[in-house]
Design a protein around this nucleic acid. Structure first.
Lengths: 271, 271
DNA sequence: CAGTTGCGTTCCGCACATCGGAACGCGGCC
DNA sequence: GGCCGCGTTCCGATGTGCGGAACGCAACTG
């Protein structure tokens, strides 16, 4: 039942203790939280073996996180992620002043194209989608396995990497993992794609992450230091023929205009 | 250990305060996170003064939480909530197996009544709304100030407290704070309301939290130990005359049916 | 332009919080 | 009933995080 297609949240050098930070107990507490990214419910023994710590330590960590509200106890003495994390997460996104600004444009773009619109930001070397306007109806919330994907294989990741050399090196250092036969895994070709992305002002991904599905993305920018800097991406995702066929020019124009509008609104909201 | 001769600084009895658990550094780390519930960006000095800890401690806490991804550094050396919290929060809600199950019914109820529908769960003595279907359009996401409200003054909180004596005592112990002239603050009257809620199978709140706005809620139940037990509430919130006037019977019937349907779907999803 | 103030960060020694192992209580399961 | 697995608790030694002061830097300010 675990999701195999995505890389783990963070690349661990192994369970045998990488201690590059002070506050060891806080670090292990975060590591305990990370354990819950894979499994819904965990007990002390399981956590202890996964992290290579003593069972008593794991038990204390779980108890401390539970009293803090970051974890909750289930009936059987195990633990799961707590709803306080939901509140914090909503606050984190709210404070980007991005989702609220982008939602109207996303809704209109969805109506215009009748396709699914995603709002993505970079976290690490992945793209995290903080909002999605579904094509069919609003009543399908995207599931966790589609809430994040590697930056190198998505159009949103490309418009964001196109203007961020540090991100590009991080992505290349991590390696261009192949997900479909179409995934671009050659660094040189990847850089060429980024160059054309810079030039054209939008990016595409043709079935490079999930067979049959492609996407087109445009950057949402914010003027920092006099120069526009991408902070997020608006992307249209659909079966390949619906957006990379004859409709492609219309889709490109639509998503670019919507992203430009969001950028302007965002600029205005920062005051 | 803190100096005992000093009188305890009158910290607000809100999210901060109790540090009696083991793993003190983890507790303070959670307290540091709590600081960000109020303010979007904080620095080490501010955090230190708010928690009454040394500036160096606060700095280390912030750094540790940032390397864990729970916080992010802003340009000016301050910190804000990190997007990893968004991921964790989404996972926490996903694993309730509640939002996905409830969304179709919420959408239909919204279309039926043309009003805003909320899906709320209990956290502490508050009701936290994990999803909302807006009446006007989907493009208005509810803001943080309306994502949570005290259980005693909301209809959702009443249907959830009606079957949970422990929650009732917790609510009463906290005190029935007054928000509007209509807020029920008399414990006896509150218990009467809960009794009639139990009897009728739904609850109302007439402008008890925000002037002009009322709500009607019905419980979403899950059979535990042979008996249905409320785990969430579906509520309709609107200006008072639109739901507590002549339309009230229709609204009550609609929300009760929708909640019953979600309960059945939820029961089915647990397999 | 230097003085000042505030910030975040770093350093260091002492004290105490935290870790691991072993023991305990409890529930299912042969 | 005996056995196993689980989560929890207890305890002593130790290493880790605490507080205070010092540092570098940036933004104001006279």
């Amino acid at each position: 039942m675990t999701v195999l297609s995505l890389p783990p949240l963070d690349l661990d050098t192994g369970p045998t203790g990488d201690d590059d930070s002070p506050l060891r107990s806080v670090s292990t507490a975060v590591a305990v939280l990370d354990c819950f990214a894979d499994e819904a419910e965990l007990g002390a023994t399981r956590v202890a073996t996964r992290l290579g710590i003593a069972k008593s330590t794991a038990c204390r960590m779980l108890a401390a996180l539970a009293t803090g509200g970051l974890l909750e106890r289930t009936g059987s003495g195990r633990y799961r992620l707590g709803l306080r994390l939901f509140e914090y997460g909503q606050l984190a996104v709210d404070r980007l002043m991005l989702r609220d600004v982008a939602l109207p444009a996303m809704g209109e773009l969805r109506e215009l194209l009748r396709e699914t619109i995603q709002l993505g930001v970079v976290v690490g070397t992945d793209v995290l989608y903080v909002e999605r306007a579904e094509a069919a109806s609003m009543n399908v919330r995207f599931r966790s396995e589609h809430r994040r994907n590697p930056a190198h294989s998505s159009s949103a990741g490309r418009v964001l990497a196109a203007a961020d050399p540090a991100l590009v090196t991080a992505i290349l250092e991590r390696g261009l993992q192949r997900y479909t036969p179409f995934t671009v895994v050659d660094p040189l070709r990847y850089r060429q794609i980024l160059a054309s992305t810079r030039e054209q002002g939008y990016a595409t991904s043709r079935e490079e992450f999930e067979p049959g599905w492609s996407s087109i993305a445009a950057p949402i920018t914010l003027t920092r230091g006099g120069r526009p800097h991408p902070v997020a991406a608006l992307s249209v995702v659909a079966p390949t023929s619906r957006i990379l066929g004859p409709r492609k020019p219309a889709v490109v124009q639509g998503v670019r205009r919507a992203a430009a509008r969001v950028s302007a609104d965002l600029e205005r909201a920062r005051s």
